[in-house]
Amino acid sequence: MLIGALALAAGVVLGLVWDVAVPEAMEPYLPIAVVAALDALFGGVRAKLDKIFDDKVFVVSFIFNVLVAALIVFLGDKLGVGSQLSTGVVVVLGVRIFGNVAAIRRHLFKA
C-alpha cells in the first residue's frame, strides 16, 4: 500500500516536472486513458482494503482498461460515433469508480 502510494506520488511529480508534449494523434485518448487509469487505481485500493489485492490483476486490469478504452474511442471515431462511445466508456467506468470509492468509504468510515 505504502509503496503504491509512493509510486503514484512519484508519477504525479514526474508528470508535473517533466513537460511531456502529448502527440496530437494521442490527444483524443488521453481523457479516456485517465478515466481507465482511475478505475484501475480505485479498484486496486478497494481490493487492498478487502484484503484480496493481487499485483497481477492490478497490472493486467490497468493495461487492458486503457487499451480497450482507447480501442473503443478509436473504433468510434472511425464509425462516426466517437463522442457517444467516449461518453459510454466514461459512464461505465464512472459507475465503477463511484462504486469502488463507496466501498472504500465504507471500509474507512464504516458508513
Partner: peptide, 16 residues
C-alpha cells in the same frame, strides 16, 4: 511491475 503501474497512473493523471 505493480509499482511501475502506479507510477504510470500518476504520470497519466499529471500529464492530462
Amino acid at each position: 511491475f505493480s509499482a511501475v503501474t502506479a507510477v504510470v497512473i500518476g504520470l497519466l493523471i499529471a500529464v492530462a
